[in-house]
């Protein structure tokens, strides 16, 4: 708990300079343009009214720092960010990190969620195949991220690797600050149970990923 506060403080300290500019444009000016340009998805001529939509207009401190650094934060900022990211990871209460890989595969396939045309009462998918090769049988995979084939096998299915994988999916910045991969747990895209299922997809011996 204490470390969370400390690293959050460190992070905001490192970020004070960021507020001033964004790519040569005063941040204030940029924010004004954003606020006036985006409309509420339901009332398409008015400014976003609900907190869900209004909050998306203002980048959080991590997003601001990464945008400013063009995703290559300097060493000190990177170290602070890794710490803050690690502190944000919530683990399951019973300590079990491996869920159901079959369900994990469905979540990895599902690209829906949080767009304005998505149903709000359905859980979001992880859309992992958009960026990664995972089960070799799925040929429609993207290449923004590295292939994750034989992921668990390559890591000897170790307890340590299971924990690192869970944390990576929960908040990708734990290992790679300013990663292009979304922070699925920290940003509330996926639930703890969904992240367990995805961890199983990658780390369970029975998962097709490791066959």
């Amino acid at each position: 708990m204490k470390t969370t506060i400390i690293s959050a403080a460190l992070l905001s300290l490192a970020l004070t300079s960021v507020q001033a500019t964004a790519g040569g444009v005063p941040a204030e000016k940029l924010q004004k343009i954003i606020n006036s340009s985006f409309k509420d998805p339901d009332k398409s001529t008015e400014a976003p009214a609900t907190p869900t939509w209004a909050s998306r207009l203002t980048p959080d401190t991590v997003q601001q720092a990464c945008s400013e650094a063009r995703n290559h934060p300097d060493k000190d900022l990177a170290a602070d960010m890794e710490k803050a990211a690690a502190a944000s990871v919530k683990y399951p209460e019973d300590g079990k990190l491996l869920g159901d890989w079959k369900n994990g595969e469905k979540i990895a396939q599902n690209g829906k969620g949080l767009r304005f045309n998505d149903k709000v009462d359905e859980p979001s998918g992880g859309n992992c195949y958009a960026c990664h090769q995972i089960d070799k049988k799925e040929l429609a995979f993207g290449t923004i991220g590295p292939p994750l084939t034989e992921y668990g096998k390559n890591r000897d299915f170790s307890e340590e690797a299971i924990k690192a994988t869970y944390a990576k999916i929960y908040n990708s910045h734990t290992v790679v600050p300013c990663s292009h991969m979304p922070r699925f747990g920290t940003m509330g895209i996926l639930t703890i149970d969904q992240i367990k299922d995805l961890t199983a997809l990658l780390m369970d011996k029975e998962s097709p990923v490791n066959k």
Binding site: A22, G23, G24, V25, L30, I33, I34, R56, L57, T58, P59, V62, Q63, C66, S67, R70, L114, H180, P182, R183, M187, G188, I189
Partner: peptide, 12 residues
């Protein structure tokens, strides 16, 4: 240019 590189929203 700033907008092109600006990360925002739940997926960053």
């Amino acid at each position: 240019e700033a907008l092109f590189f600006l990360r925002a929203g739940p997926f960053d």
